[in-house]
Design a protein around this nucleic acid. Structure first.
Lengths: 214, 214
DNA sequence: GCGTCTATCTTGCCATCGTCAAGTTGACGG
DNA sequence: CCGTCAACTTGACGATGGCAAGATAGACGC
């Protein structure tokens, strides 16, 4: 193993793996630097050298998550007929929700950094999150040829698609939906979100304003 | 002050007030039992007697939040023409988003308890969350007289209304929207959500399935 | 008025945590 | 062989959550 690290081999990756284990087992609130170090077989201070502090480690893990989600968007946009707006948006929505449900560890950390406005703005995490969401916006924007998404409201559609999926994903992962939308399966909830997406397009001009309205 | 408490007067309330202060100032991640106790003017172990442990204190604060949100739903449903489905749903949506933006401290704790599935189910917090969301479902269900919400999809509409508002609220409060839906005001985002709500109704039968489809 | 009781709150303690400063290890160029 | 420098360790500090034991003071029966 001749990587760019010396003693451990690849402590950077090992620590991110340990974070994944711990968050999956106990949730991100119960993660400690010392346990991550323990699982990686290093001393309690080793993580600081690679990630600065605890927030740095969680940020790196969250960035990993945004990269994984970006890949999902790419695959979803690639594997569908570009001319069918509904099909594209549904595919993107499914990709988002599938990721959130299949990888709740990454997902929970991605949206729980809990930094102040000033700390977050301009950080590497914000850049990664931006790039991810920009990919979604691009996919939606490429549908402008189709009549149902216009140049003016593409960004609005992308925002609402993302927001709706995010809300449902969070509530699903936190067991808040079962009580509300009684004993349903995830596929049924997914179908529900697809309905919102179709409504987003069917609503047409009436479905919300855009930044261009200002 | 002749309340049901002995030494302090009303430590229960004082501690919840301290939590509100601290969460507002530094976020719920940086809340400590000892600082809450310090601000309430009691020893570091006093909170344990009233709330059991840290999670118990945060749960009580979150329950307070769900009660506040329930009040908002009641007021929103009362102050609008019950026959106009669009107006009612928009009013509920505005109530939800206004609460999230005006009281981010409560809101952030309400949706970040981070318990395991088994711990959450049946807890007082789950009961309070259920009651709150049930109130929203009732308000939507009362629109069945109107043609645009049917008995069959009322619960679906309520779920998607709530999910969409929740997603947008979280992203707004966490500064994740500014990068995506470029420099907008909150009112503009609110208008966007209203568009989704109208699409939810305009989509009609095509806008998603319901549990009855199973 | 008095003794007892019980909920309320305090004190002291422990393991753990995040972070920092200082020291150690080992690969590499010269 | 030696200096250098990144990677990692060791040891310490203050702070935290939780627990056990004790102190306090209002309530209640008589």
């Amino acid at each position: 193993m001749t990587t760019d690290t010396y003693h451990h081999g690849d402590l950077h990756r090992a620590l991110l793996g340990a974070v994944d284990e711990i968050v999956s087992e106990k949730g991100f609130q119960d993660l400690s630097l010392r346990e991550a170090a323990r699982r990686a077989g290093v001393s309690h201070s080793a993580p600081a050298h690679h990630f600065g502090d605890k927030d740095g480690l969680l940020d790196a893990y969250a960035i990993e998550g945004f990269e994984l989600l970006t890949e999902r968007f790419d695959r979803a946009a690639a594997g569908v007929d570009r001319v069918d707006s509904v099909a594209v948006l549904e595919s993107l929505g499914r990709a988002y929700l599938s990721f959130a449900v299949e990888d709740p560890a990454h997902y929970s950390v991605m949206f729980n950094h809990q930094k102040s406005h000033d700390e977050y703005m301009g950080s590497d995490l914000a850049v990664a999150a931006d790039a991810c969401f920009e990919r979604l916006a691009q996919a939606v924007g490429s549908l402008v040829r189709d009549g149902r998404v216009t140049e003016a409201n593409a960004r609005y559609v992308a925002t609402m698609l993302w927001g709706t999926c995010h809300g449902i994903a969070v509530l699903w992962n936190d067991d808040k939906l079962p009580h509300f939308y009684e004993d349903h399966t995830f596929d049924e909830v997914l179908d529900g979100v697809m309905g919102v997406i179709r409504g987003l397009l069917q609503g047409g001009a009436g479905a919300g304003r855009d930044a261009s309205d200002r």
